[in-house]
Protein backbone atom coordinates (compact mmCIF):
# COMPACT_ATOMS: atom_id res chain seq x y z
CA UNK A 1 0.00 0.00 0.00
CA UNK A 2 1.10 3.57 -0.73
CA UNK A 3 0.21 6.60 1.42
CA UNK A 4 -1.66 7.96 -1.61
CA UNK A 5 -4.03 4.98 -1.38
CA UNK A 6 -5.18 6.09 2.05
CA UNK A 7 -8.26 8.24 2.46
CA UNK A 8 -7.67 10.59 5.37
CA UNK A 9 -11.19 11.95 5.20
CA UNK A 10 -12.82 8.75 6.45
CA UNK A 11 -13.51 8.22 10.12
CA UNK A 12 -10.84 6.86 12.44
CA UNK A 13 -12.29 3.33 12.55
CA UNK A 14 -12.31 3.03 8.78
CA UNK A 15 -8.84 4.60 8.51
CA UNK A 16 -7.58 1.86 10.82
CA UNK A 17 -9.61 -0.84 9.06
CA UNK A 18 -11.53 -1.63 12.24
CA UNK A 19 -15.21 -2.32 12.82
CA UNK A 20 -17.03 0.71 14.18
CA UNK A 21 -17.68 -0.45 17.72
CA UNK A 22 -16.79 0.43 21.28
CA UNK A 23 -15.19 -2.95 21.91
CA UNK A 24 -11.90 -3.06 20.14
CA UNK A 25 -8.99 -5.48 19.74
CA UNK A 26 -6.02 -3.61 21.24
CA UNK A 27 -3.44 -5.87 19.59
CA UNK A 28 -4.90 -5.32 16.14
CA UNK A 29 -5.27 -1.59 16.82
CA UNK A 30 -1.57 -1.34 17.58
CA UNK A 31 -0.60 -3.41 14.56
CA UNK A 32 -2.66 -1.15 12.31
CA UNK A 33 -1.16 1.92 13.93
CA UNK A 34 2.36 0.72 13.24
CA UNK A 35 1.40 -0.24 9.68
CA UNK A 36 -0.09 3.21 9.03
CA UNK A 37 2.85 5.10 10.54
CA UNK A 38 5.24 2.95 8.53
CA UNK A 39 3.54 4.41 5.45
CA UNK A 40 3.12 8.04 6.46
CA UNK A 41 5.74 8.90 9.09
CA UNK A 42 7.88 11.95 8.12
CA UNK A 43 11.03 9.82 8.48
CA UNK A 44 9.93 8.04 5.31
CA UNK A 45 10.02 11.26 3.32
CA UNK A 46 12.94 13.08 4.97
CA UNK A 47 14.84 12.89 1.64
CA UNK A 48 11.92 14.32 -0.37
CA UNK A 49 11.04 17.97 -1.12
CA UNK A 50 9.53 20.16 1.59
CA UNK A 51 5.98 19.96 0.24
CA UNK A 52 5.94 16.18 0.59
CA UNK A 53 7.48 16.36 4.04
CA UNK A 54 4.70 18.72 5.08
CA UNK A 55 2.01 16.37 3.80
CA UNK A 56 3.68 13.47 5.58
CA UNK A 57 3.69 15.46 8.81
CA UNK A 58 -0.02 16.19 8.47
CA UNK A 59 -0.86 12.57 7.74
CA UNK A 60 1.29 11.26 10.58
CA UNK A 61 -0.29 13.84 12.91
CA UNK A 62 -3.75 12.62 11.97
CA UNK A 63 -2.79 8.95 12.44
CA UNK A 64 -1.40 9.78 15.89
CA UNK A 65 -4.55 11.67 16.81
CA UNK A 66 -6.74 8.81 15.57
CA UNK A 67 -4.67 6.26 17.51
CA UNK A 68 -4.83 8.25 20.73
CA UNK A 69 -8.60 8.49 20.29
CA UNK A 70 -9.13 4.82 19.56
CA UNK A 71 -6.82 3.36 22.20
CA UNK A 72 -8.56 5.04 25.15
CA UNK A 73 -12.01 3.70 25.96
CA UNK A 74 -13.45 7.03 27.09
CA UNK A 75 -12.10 8.89 24.05
CA UNK A 76 -13.18 6.11 21.71
CA UNK A 77 -16.71 6.11 23.16
CA UNK A 78 -16.92 9.90 23.00
CA UNK A 79 -15.82 9.81 19.37
CA UNK A 80 -18.22 6.99 18.52
CA UNK A 81 -21.11 8.83 20.15
CA UNK A 82 -20.22 11.99 18.22
CA UNK A 83 -20.43 9.93 15.01
CA UNK A 84 -23.95 9.00 16.13
CA UNK A 85 -24.74 12.67 16.77
CA UNK A 86 -24.75 12.26 20.56
CA UNK A 87 -23.10 14.97 22.68
CA UNK A 88 -21.69 13.59 25.93
CA UNK A 89 -22.34 16.97 27.63
CA UNK A 90 -19.34 16.60 29.90
CA UNK A 91 -19.08 20.35 30.42
CA UNK A 92 -22.77 21.08 30.80
CA UNK A 93 -24.61 18.11 32.27
CA UNK A 94 -23.85 18.08 35.98
CA UNK A 95 -26.79 15.94 37.03
CA UNK A 96 -24.78 13.06 38.44
CA UNK A 97 -26.22 10.50 40.87
CA UNK A 98 -25.68 11.66 44.45
CA UNK A 99 -24.12 8.39 45.62
CA UNK A 100 -21.61 8.57 42.75
CA UNK A 101 -20.63 12.11 43.69
CA UNK A 102 -20.34 11.19 47.36
CA UNK A 103 -18.04 8.32 46.45
CA UNK A 104 -15.93 10.64 44.29
CA UNK A 105 -15.57 13.06 47.17
CA UNK A 106 -14.53 10.28 49.52
CA UNK A 107 -11.91 9.06 47.07
CA UNK A 108 -10.59 12.55 46.56
CA UNK A 109 -10.25 12.99 50.30
CA UNK A 110 -8.49 9.64 50.55
CA UNK A 111 -6.01 10.71 47.86
CA UNK A 112 -5.40 13.97 49.69
CA UNK A 113 -4.85 12.16 52.96
CA UNK A 114 -2.50 9.63 51.42
CA UNK A 115 -0.52 12.48 49.89
CA UNK A 116 -0.39 14.34 53.18
CA UNK A 117 0.78 11.22 54.99
CA UNK A 118 3.21 10.42 52.12
CA UNK A 119 1.67 6.97 52.14
CA UNK A 120 2.57 5.29 48.83
CA UNK A 121 0.93 2.01 49.86
CA UNK A 122 -2.38 3.78 50.38
CA UNK A 123 -2.05 5.36 46.94
CA UNK A 124 -1.30 1.94 45.43
CA UNK A 125 -4.48 0.63 46.99
CA UNK A 126 -6.56 3.56 45.79
CA UNK A 127 -5.12 3.29 42.31
CA UNK A 128 -5.93 -0.41 42.10
CA UNK A 129 -9.44 0.24 43.36
CA UNK A 130 -10.07 3.03 40.89
CA UNK A 131 -8.66 0.95 38.05
CA UNK A 132 -11.14 -1.81 38.87
CA UNK A 133 -14.06 0.61 39.00
CA UNK A 134 -12.95 2.18 35.73
CA UNK A 135 -12.76 -1.18 33.99
CA UNK A 136 -16.23 -1.99 35.24
CA UNK A 137 -17.65 1.25 33.85
CA UNK A 138 -15.82 0.64 30.58
CA UNK A 139 -17.34 -2.84 30.29
CA UNK A 140 -20.81 -1.37 30.87
CA UNK A 141 -20.09 1.30 28.28
CA UNK A 142 -19.27 -1.30 25.63
CA UNK A 143 -22.56 -3.06 26.31
CA UNK A 144 -24.58 0.16 26.24
CA UNK A 145 -23.11 1.19 22.89
CA UNK A 146 -22.50 -2.08 21.03
CA UNK A 147 -25.32 -4.27 22.34
CA UNK A 148 -28.13 -2.09 23.68
CA UNK A 149 -27.44 0.95 21.49
CA UNK A 150 -28.57 3.05 24.42
CA UNK A 151 -26.58 6.19 23.67
CA UNK A 152 -28.14 8.35 26.39
CA UNK A 153 -27.00 5.88 29.07
CA UNK A 154 -23.64 5.61 27.32
CA UNK A 155 -23.19 9.40 27.50
CA UNK A 156 -23.89 9.17 31.24
CA UNK A 157 -21.17 6.52 31.60
CA UNK A 158 -18.72 8.70 29.67
CA UNK A 159 -19.43 11.51 32.14
CA UNK A 160 -18.73 9.13 35.03
CA UNK A 161 -15.52 7.94 33.39
CA UNK A 162 -14.40 11.55 33.05
CA UNK A 163 -14.57 11.77 36.85
CA UNK A 164 -12.52 8.59 37.14
CA UNK A 165 -9.98 9.97 34.68
CA UNK A 166 -9.55 13.11 36.77
CA UNK A 167 -9.18 11.02 39.88
CA UNK A 168 -6.45 8.96 38.20
CA UNK A 169 -4.68 12.21 37.28
CA UNK A 170 -4.83 13.31 40.91
CA UNK A 171 -3.32 10.05 42.06
CA UNK A 172 -0.55 10.47 39.48
CA UNK A 173 0.17 13.97 40.81
CA UNK A 174 0.10 12.68 44.38
CA UNK A 175 2.78 10.06 43.57
CA UNK A 176 4.99 12.81 42.13
CA UNK A 177 4.39 14.88 45.24
CA UNK A 178 5.38 12.06 47.58
CA UNK A 179 8.50 11.53 45.52
CA UNK A 180 9.93 15.02 46.03
Amino acid sequence: MQPSDLDFQQNYFKLFGLAQSCRIDPVRLEQQYHALQTLVHPDKSAHLPDAEQRIAMQHATLVNEAYQTLRSTIRRARYLLSLYGVDTQEGTNTAMPVDFLMEQMEWREAVGEAQQARDAAALDQLEAHIKRETHELEAQLEIKIDTERNYADAAGLVRKLRFMEKLAEEIHAAYDEIDT
Partner: peptide, 18 residues
Protein backbone atom coordinates in the same frame (compact mmCIF):
# COMPACT_ATOMS: atom_id res chain seq x y z
CA UNK B 1 22.08 4.48 11.22
CA UNK B 2 19.06 6.80 11.27
CA UNK B 3 20.76 9.31 8.93
CA UNK B 4 21.37 6.54 6.43
CA UNK B 5 17.70 5.62 6.50
CA UNK B 6 16.47 9.22 6.27
CA UNK B 7 18.81 10.00 3.37
CA UNK B 8 16.97 7.35 1.40
CA UNK B 9 19.63 4.66 1.42
CA UNK B 10 17.22 1.87 2.07
CA UNK B 11 18.88 -1.39 2.66
CA UNK B 12 15.77 -3.52 2.77
CA UNK B 13 15.31 -3.82 6.49
CA UNK B 14 13.55 -0.71 7.70
CA UNK B 15 12.35 0.37 11.07
CA UNK B 16 10.01 2.95 12.44
CA UNK B 17 10.78 5.46 15.18
CA UNK B 18 7.96 6.90 17.25
Amino acid sequence: IQANLLAGNRGGDEWLLL
